[in-house]
Nucleic acid binder design. Sequence first.
DNA 1: CTTTCAGTTGGAAGCGTTTCCAATTCCCTG
DNA 2: CAGGGAATTGGAAACGCTTCCAACTGAAAG
Lengths: 340, 340
Amino acid sequence: MTGIKDVAERAGLSVATVSRALSGKGNVSPGSRERARAAAAELGFVLSYHASSLASGRTHNVGLVVPSVHRWFFSAVIEGASAALLEAGYDLTLYNIGENPAHRHSVFNDFLLRKRVDAVIAVSLELSEAEIQQLHAMNRPIVGIGGPLPGASTIRIDDTGIARKATNHLLGLGHSKIAHITGHEAYDQDFHLPGTRRGGFEKAMNDAGCPVRPEWIVSADFTVEGAYRAARQLLASAPERPTAVFAASDEMAIGTILAARDFGLRIPDDLSVIGIDGHDLGNVLGLTTIDQDAKGQGALAVRTLLGAISNGLVLEPADAEHPTNLVVRTSTAVPKESPS
Amino acid sequence: MTGIKDVAERAGLSVATVSRALSGKGNVSPGSRERARAAAAELGFVLSYHASSLASGRTHNVGLVVPSVHRWFFSAVIEGASAALLEAGYDLTLYNIGENPAHRHSVFNDFLLRKRVDAVIAVSLELSEAEIQQLHAMNRPIVGIGGPLPGASTIRIDDTGIARKATNHLLGLGHSKIAHITGHEAYDQDFHLPGTRRGGFEKAMNDAGCPVRPEWIVSADFTVEGAYRAARQLLASAPERPTAVFAASDEMAIGTILAARDFGLRIPDDLSVIGIDGHDLGNVLGLTTIDQDAKGQGALAVRTLLGAISNGLVLEPADAEHPTNLVVRTSTAVPKESPS
DNA sequence: CTTTCAGTTGGAAGCGTTTCCAATTCCCTG
DNA sequence: CAGGGAATTGGAAACGCTTCCAACTGAAAG
């Protein structure tokens, strides 16, 4: 393969100068820079980041750890991060934890320790003490998305706030019989996010003087299918039905809509539904939601990390709150029955 | 950081021996092997694959190139490949081409050439001559999933066959007025898959003596939303409505179901719908489909590549046909009107 | 016309492994 | 007990870069 030595030879320069010219670091005369570039282009030379990383310690590679690759939020973060990294010339190593504990273990105890990545993005991971330590042991900048990561920088949305906002949207329309589909508390790969959103829901309800009925709070695993089942139960078993449902994610809102249709309930006439996310399907389904710009969160994480990398790998733990945006579509409306 | 030298010192062995002991290659006495292992474990030593790759040429990293991270099929392939790689101790570098031509270009002209990957999996990519050349220029094993990749090994399903199978399922139920939602031919990131599936559809129709009505063949971009729009047009504009729809993917089948519901059409009473994929949502929606085990295809691709890697990076171009499986659920039934 | 200094340049020492090669040890043969 | 081959070991040379350092250049300053 053609190496930097070949380029140097062709350009009539030393290896050192070519390296400086190509990397843009250090002083090189414009002429030499141009000759180096030209020679590299002619030879189709591409730097080997492997070798480069050995010498410089920079791998030009960022690790992205996600609990799953199927849930919409994670795909969106991947997409946003991937594009931002591509643009910066960085590779993206994907660690899909999945449900297998052995996989999870090896990601934290082998893969991440191989000094292959300059930085790590951890998405919606509820980490154990040991895992956090492993992460910090890498001595690399880390940013967490979707919840707090002790000692790391974090990008998050105001979960309590948006839950309140969503609930208030329903309350504002005149609903008082509002159900909530939350996440499983035990779903240990997620931050305490279910609880937080649920807290916002309850707070808004209380503030409005609406009773929170325990039987109208059901939980699911954040998937369409799980919420579909939960919503069926909610809608079937109630002696009295809620007139609105606030789901903790769009996928669960979609599951709710599907379940409602099974019962012949019209959306929004018989049931209003609101979610959180900004899922692509929301458009088709007319789902009212709170858009949290997951793609943007992924991109922001990358920008944060690249900043830290060029800053000598130091990243002050910080907390960035990402803006959200209520998108009103056709799944929410004034309840048919006169409000209390 | 602790390096192999530290391990060697601690174990009272030479660096060379420790390297052999840890990698399992070359002859090492059981005693030395054990001492090396122990010392490595005690020090929490993890091999740097960067350095390792410089010396050995093996990166322990596989590149996965996908057109998008959102469409179900791609996520599923990623999931399957990711798990298989994790198990083998390999990293997965994800290249999400996306819609940006510049990104696409840099993936093929920069990223893949950096000698960072031992092998490449390319999913559903319709590649240009130049791109194929770049790929082969890497001189690494390549496997394509979802369609032919000139000169590379391929994992695919029998697209014509399953399209026939799907169509025959509808025909067998008594349908004759069958519409088809195909992919955009011009959708250049996909193989000629839309055409192939459409061909199978037409063949089955012809064989059954059913006319193929051009106005009942509409195309979309393989997404739920796109198919939703296409199906709305199909269902709205027809002076006569089809009694069944065969969609070239589950996501498009789902879009069709959503559109049908907008028109008050009951599934399957008024409209039967069948798709192809094995999408998770199929279960909730009762979607009849042909499961193509995308996860399995991803895993198989990995196994194929790992085989090639241990075989000196040579991979005979071959063609593996992955099995598919008709899953009959509730979205297809005998048409209400008496069949012709 | 020296001196000085910033801007350029090349040599060479690593970076952390693998692997070739030669040396050593050990266990069998004869 | 010498000789031979296999198994085991360590030294050292790569692998393809970056970067420290010293040497050199030229122009501005004195």
